[in-house]
Simulated assay, not measured.
Amino acid sequence: MNENRVSERSLAPTANALFVAWTERTGIAVEVWALADQAVPPKIADGLLRALAEALAAIEEGVWPRAVAVALTSGPRGVRLTVSHDGAGEPWPGSRLAVLHATFLELGGRVNVTYVPGGGTTLTGTIAADRLGR
């Protein structure tokens, strides 16, 4: 057994709890497209959950869409967090986007934001497998 795997943890339970609490507070539905059940190192898990909470806070602060979609996947190439919304406002408040970039940079990853005026925004953060110790 790989000793590093013993200290890894799953993101799914904490992410699900975050979605439920956020939806109850805001009334905005979170559609979960995919939620990794594969465990990742604690530093990566903590960073991804911070990024997810920051993305939801940014959406709540800026655009108030009808729906938010989230995919959090983990595979041989690494981990990917995608958060999309159908809001028509600013894509992400600047300070929140800076925190998201810094979080992924700290984890050895990167963030990409795609904005369609009036059509919503998608944020994708990735962390390569070599940063996960795989």
Rank of each mutant, 00 (worst) to 15 (best):
G120L: 10
T121D: 07
V40R: 04
E31A: 15
A67W: 02
T126L: 09
A15C: 10
A17Q: 14
L35V: 08
I44A: 13
L107E: 09
D86C: 07
D46A: 14
A55Q: 06
W64G: 04
E60H: 12
S74P: 00
A45K: 07
G119D: 11
S95A: 14
L48H: 13
G47L: 13
L18F: 03
N16M: 12
E3Y: 09
R96Q: 06
L48Y: 15
E24P: 00
W92T: 08
H101Q: 12
E24N: 13
P93A: 14
L100G: 04
A129K: 00
S7M: 13
T82G: 06
A21M: 02
E60Y: 08
A17G: 09
W92D: 00
E31K: 12
P117V: 11
T126Q: 06
V116D: 07
S84P: 00
A71R: 12
R50C: 07
A39S: 14
T26E: 10
A69W: 08
E54Q: 14
G118L: 09
V79H: 00
L72T: 03
D130T: 08
L132F: 02
P41F: 02
G47D: 13
E90L: 05
V30Y: 05
S84N: 00
R131K: 15
R5G: 06
A36C: 13
W33C: 12
V30H: 04
P117S: 11
T114A: 14
A129F: 05
G120T: 09
G87A: 06
L105N: 11
D130W: 12
D46Q: 13
I28P: 06
K43L: 11
T124M: 12
G78L: 06
G118F: 10
N4C: 00
L18D: 03
V79L: 15
A58T: 07
A34S: 14
G118N: 10
A71G: 13
E8Y: 13
I44G: 01
G108N: 02
L123P: 02
I44L: 15
L123E: 03
R50A: 13
L81F: 06
V68Y: 11
V99G: 00
G27M: 09
E61M: 14
V83H: 00
W64Q: 10
A128K: 07
